[in-house]
Structure formats: structure tokens, C-alpha cells
Design a protein around this nucleic acid. Structure first.
Lengths: 177, 177
DNA sequence: ATGGAACGTTCGTTATAAGGAACGCTCGTA
DNA sequence: TACGAGCGTTCCTTATAACGAACGTTCCAT
């Protein structure tokens, strides 16, 4: 938990509150917390408990994660943004990601667990993706699927690319043994 | 914040931890919190700070809200939750959705614009989906694709189903003319 | 002008979440 | 059998989040 996250939480809280035309005192009172508490949070200091967050989320009628969720995906490593969307823990386990790549970038990924497969659907732009010895071009709206239990790679050309990716771990094996 | 929420948080934490085959001591140490703290949380007592929740979410590689999410998320009247994830406005335009369906529910959808296709990837559970005269079963981790310029349908059986869906509008036609 | 009410902030106090050192327990292993 | 390593739990202590009563503002209504 760093200062940046706390700042975004504060800004987010204040935005949600003022968007409703509510005063700080009013929100604090309705949520059942001290206004000094809320004041500190909006300033980006403090480290609220789950109880406090919960009361605020209920009062603002906002899904819980929204209070803390960064405005945009924060991770930018070499022009690639990745955000975990959801995880399925049935058999097989499935991880779902949203991913955005800048033009002319390449992201290499190590092999996942044996039998794992990846599924790609391109939302905008196009990219070249797959096992390093068998990469394919995937255009806007298209999907592809490949074995991910070997080194693989995502590469963009002249345009940005946005895509959904799922990793399917075979036969109920755990992704993080 | 009531006792029930704390219990579900505890159960959720414990499930995520054991699913990875991690010991309580290990997770606490990796996340940088005292194991007494984690122990208390898993028992459904305590009221963690955002810092503590954050460290656990990062270590478990779980989206933040997931830790706290209620067992039964709010559903619309038909037992189906839909959330727009992203929109691509290249050619062709693409809409990306996350979708969750309760057991034994059926959602009918009208035809989209001519040439539109839908792409489904199942994250957990399984469902029967496609044009009403040609529906297919799709299991966890699998994908399918079908013409969406005719009436189509999503149907679950005995289990919940979570999926990613993309709608691809053909030839640059706008989804909402 | 002047009182009152509401606003957001600051500060000392109190409640409590997090930390850390025990404990009893179950395993393998010598 | 005895030992050590690791497990999860239970205390007690310490750090700190939440509270509540101030405070200085602003802005109306008197």
C-alpha cells in the first residue's frame, strides 16, 4: 500500500461524493463514520479499515472494488498494460486478462504449466502472437488459440492492440504450484 | 460491516490460499503481514485495513474486490449479470463483455446487425449458447463463435457460468446506427 | 452588522488492528 | 523414541485508525 494508491482512493472518494452533491459531513453521518475520518481519507492520508470502506461503498451505492480500483490499469511495462479481469477456479482453472500493447512492442512470456493453452480475442488493432516458432497474425475481431506450455510472444506492428486473453490450465492443475 | 461479511471474507481468503497449496505462514510472510493477523482474518474476526487487504490481493494475484465480493452478486431479474469491459472502434467495431449467469436460466437476445458474430469464452461452469436453431455446449476454458445476426440464446444448466463475450460487427457497420 | 447554521479541518483521546513471542500440534527423519 | 521443522492458534504489547470536540470559514436570514 503506497501513497499513490491512497491518493487515488481519496480523489475517487471525493469525486463520487461531490458528483452526488453531498457534503463531507452528510456522507460521513449517513455512512455512520466520523467526518474527521472521511476528511483524512479524502486527503490521501490514512489507511481505512474494511468496515469504513464498506460503509462508504454502501452509502455511495458503488460496487466495493470501485472505491479502490485505479482509474486506468496502472501497470505499464515496456508499453504493455495487463489487467486481471476474473479467475475461474473450476476444472480447469481459467484466468481472464485484458491487455493493451503500444505499437512496435514485443512481450515475451515464459511457458505456463504443462498443457496450458491461451485464447486471444482482439478488440482493436492487430497483433502477431503464439509460440515463438509458430506465430500468427490476428486482426480486429478475430480469435486464436495456442499451446502456452512453451515460450510464447505478443508483438504489435504499426498500431495499438487491445485484446482479451484467457489462460486455461489443463486438467485442474493449479496455476501457482 | 457485519459478521457475515467478515465470515465470507475469511472463507474466501482461506479458499484462495489453500487452492494454491500455500500455508498460512507462507502467505503471511510473502504478503508481509503477521501470521497472527492472517489467522484472525481467516477465522472471520477482525477488520483488516486497506493496507492488509491490498497486500493479500497482490500476493494472491486476485482483483481487489474479489476478496470481499458477496457470495451472491446482484443479478438482474433474469439471473444474468452483464458488464461492458471495453469497446474497440476500429474496423470492424468490437464490444467486449463480461457475463455471469445463474443456474437454470436462459437469456434470449435479438439479432444484431447483419454479419455480426459473437465470440464466447467460458471462464467457469458451462453453458449452452448459439443461434436458437443451432445451440452448442461450451465447457470451462472452451471458446465458440457463431453468427449473431439472428436470434440467439444463452442457457445454463445446473451450474453457474462466467464468460467473456465479444460482439464483432461486420464491415465497419456501427453497432447503434 | 450579527447571529446562526453548515462547511471542512485539526487535535487530543480512546478503541482496536497489527505485530511478535510464545504455545501445542502433526509430521518426517535420525 | 526423540528430535527438529513447520503448521495454525493464542496471548500480550505496540502502533494507529476512528472518534468527538474543538476551531476558523463561508453564507444566509435576521
Amino acid at each position: 500500500m503506497d501513497r499513490i494508491s491512497l491518493n487515488t482512493l481519496g480523489q475517487h472518494l471525493q469525486h463520487l461524493r461531490t458528483a452526488r452533491g453531498w457534503s463531507l459531513s452528510y456522507l460521513a453521518s449517513e455512512a455512520g463514520i466520523a467526518k474527521s475520518n472521511l476528511s483524512r481519507l479524502e486527503q490521501g492520508n490514512g489507511n481505512p479499515t474494511l468496515d469504513t470502506l464498506w460503509r462508504l461503498a454502501v452509502q455511495l451505492e458503488v460496487p466495493f472494488g470501485t472505491l479502490v480500483a485505479p482509474v486506468t490499469a496502472p501497470l505499464d511495462e515496456e508499453g504493455v498494460q495487463v489487467q486481471l479481469l476474473d479467475q475461474g477456479r473450476d476444472t480447469p482453472p481459467v484466468d481472464a486478462y485484458w491487455m493493451r500493447c503500444a505499437p512496435w512492442t514485443e512481450r515475451r512470456a515464459e511457458a505456463h504449466t504443462p498443457g496450458a493453452r491461451e485464447n486471444i480475442t482482439v478488440i482493436s488493432g492487430h497483433l502477431v502472437v503464439g509460440p515463438v516458432d509458430n506465430m500468427q497474425i490476428v486482426s480486429t475481431g478475430q480469435s486464436t488459440s495456442f499451446a502456452a506450455d512453451q515460450a510464447h510472444c505478443y508483438r504489435t506492428e504499426e498500431s495499438w492492440a487491445t485484446l482479451l486473453m484467457t489462460i486455461v490450465y489443463s486438467g485442474g492443475e493449479e496455476p501457482h504450484p
